[in-house]
Design a protein around this nucleic acid. Structure first.
Ligand SMILES: [Mn+2]
Ligand SMILES: [Mn+2]
Ligand SMILES: [Zn+2]
Ligand SMILES: [Zn+2]
Lengths: 145, 145
DNA sequence: TTGAATATGAAATTCATTCTCATGATATAG
DNA sequence: CTATATCATGAGAATGAATTTCATATTCAA
């Protein structure tokens, strides 16, 4: 965590209280936050922090590889720490719940497909949309209504 | 193609010259167009058509299921006919070229993963980013500078 | 042909994100 | 510690894609 400050300093950057607070709240919060959600959380600690600085901090962390930008097509970006293992997402179109999954077989098939098309893959985005267990059919049985 | 007009009429909609021209140009054009690109093409035929109508037409076709909205994270949406078979995309981060692929094994693994998490999947988005054959290493051999 | 309903184009609006700019904080040399 | 050069900040302005508004034009069934 101090490693990030070191990396910023190595690039000629300076430390700052605002950025430190934003990073702390971000890495201690749940995943898949929007800038607006994060800004609110940060402002509980320090009411003076503006969202421009939250944007800047996330962009910086993204450039340094500590944060991943997510886009589930909501018109707003979401962010998560990239310190956790790679995974893809399941998004409930009813309640918005986001779950994570890892499926190595999908990963290697993607590599394979890319190679077959002459592409050197560098990243991918996979999101599966649907209805989660809570919002969907009541566990066992047929549909009602 | 007249089927779409019928469906619109069934919903209480009326035909219009502008919309007909937009639909024709759209379905006769290459895939993965932006609104701006489509608007330009349409304006060659009819200089009076505004982009608001192009947006409206694509939204309508999307609601009726004839068009799919794509988002490759460029900050602009792209559109393609959904009359072709389902497929996912490869996007070159150098030249922007978009290729298509079908991989049934990935599709069924997605179904499986969703079910394991209690999700009823309704759709997914998969895009693989990388460097295409033309932009990448020159076929056979090592990298040069 | 009429008239109620829908569609249109231009311009205004929205909203997330980025940029600008004046001010504040930070680090380092002396 | 202090000066000073550089970087970071917060507020608000600017941007740009997408949507909405509104007055007018078109469609279509009666
Ligand atoms: Mn995640
Ligand atoms: Mn396609
Ligand atoms: Zn749900
Ligand atoms: Zn390319």
């Amino acid at each position: 965590m101090r490693r990030i400050d070191a990396e910023i300093a190595a690039e000629g950057g300076k430390r700052s209280r605002s950025r430190a607070q934003i990073m702390e709240v971000f890495f201690r919060s749940g995943r898949h936050l929007t800038v607006d959600e994060l800004t609110r959380k940060v402002r509980v600690r320090n009411r003076n922090i503006g969202s421009a600085t939250v944007y800047r901090t996330l962009k910086l962390l993204s450039r340094l590889g500590y944060v991943k930008e997510l886009d589930f097509g909501e018109g707003v970006k979401r962010y998560e720490s990239s310190l956790t293992a790679h995974h893809d997402h399941l998004v409930c179109t009813e309640c918005g719940k986001v779950s994570e999954f890892e499926e190595p077989r999908i990963e290697s098939l993607q590599e394979e497909v890319a190679r077959e098309h002459g592409f050197s893959p560098t990243m991918h985005r996979l999101a599966i949309y649907g209805v989660c267990g809570r919002c969907g059919p009541p566990a066992t049985g047929k549909g009602e209504e």
